[in-house]
Lab assay of single mutants.
Amino acid sequence: MLEGKVKWFNSEKGFGFIEVEGQDDVFVHFSAIQGEGFKTLEEGQAVSFEIVEGNRGPQAANVTKEA
């Protein structure tokens, strides 16, 4: 699992990017966010995740919000 911070997330469109120190930003789709209820992320929020190869390159999977 990697750790990063949410760079930005558009809850209307359901996607955004996660910043990872020393690496390129990683695309995140709302469907990759773990948990119940409305799936969104806040700018600057700490998250842990895995990287998988998507249709358009690397993207986040199994995203969990850090306490």
Rank of each mutant, 00 (worst) to 15 (best):
F27K: 02
V28Q: 00
H29T: 04
D25N: 13
A60N: 00
K65E: 08
G37I: 06
T64K: 10
K7S: 06
M1K: 15
F27N: 02
F30Y: 12
Q23W: 13
D25V: 06
W8K: 04
Q59S: 07
G37Y: 12
E19K: 10
K65R: 14
K65Y: 15
A32W: 03
V52N: 10
V52W: 13
L2F: 12
V28C: 06
E66W: 15
P58N: 08
W8F: 13
V6N: 01
K5N: 09
A61F: 11
E53F: 14
E42V: 14
E36A: 09
S31I: 11
F17Y: 10
A46M: 09
G16L: 01
G16Q: 00
K7D: 02
V26N: 01
G16F: 01
K65C: 06
Q34L: 08
E50L: 14
V47N: 00
A60M: 01
F27C: 02
G22E: 07
I18H: 00
F27I: 03
Q23E: 12
K7Y: 03
E42P: 07
L2S: 15
I51H: 04
F30K: 09
N10R: 09
A32N: 11
Q45G: 11
E50M: 11
V63L: 07
F30T: 04
I51E: 03
G14Y: 02
E12N: 12
F49L: 10
V63I: 06
Q23S: 09
Q34R: 09
N10D: 10
N62D: 04
F15K: 02
F30W: 07
G35F: 08
G16M: 01
K7F: 03
Q23P: 04
P58D: 06
V26D: 00
F27Q: 02
F38I: 14
T64P: 02
I18L: 13
K7P: 01
Q59N: 07
A67H: 14
A32T: 07
G54R: 12
D24V: 15
Q23A: 08
K7M: 04
E19P: 02
G22P: 03
G16I: 01
G57H: 07
S48G: 11
G14M: 03
T64D: 07
F9V: 04
F17R: 03
L41C: 04
G4S: 03
I18E: 00
G4H: 02
Q34Y: 06
F27A: 03
G35M: 14
V6R: 00
F38Q: 10
V47R: 00
G4P: 01
V6G: 01
G4Y: 02
V20A: 10
L41Y: 02
T64A: 14
H29Q: 03
F9P: 00
K7Q: 04
V28E: 00
E43R: 15
G16D: 00
W8I: 04
G35C: 04
E19L: 14
S31L: 12
S48V: 12
G35S: 13
E12C: 05
V6Q: 01
V63F: 01
V6H: 00
P58A: 12
G35P: 04
D24E: 12
L2Y: 10
M1N: 10
A61M: 11
G54C: 04
S31F: 06
I18Q: 00
G14P: 00
K65I: 11
K13Y: 12
N62I: 07
E42Q: 14
L2P: 04
V20G: 04
A32R: 03
D24W: 06
E53S: 13
A60E: 00
E42M: 10
L41D: 00
H29P: 03
D24S: 14
F27H: 03
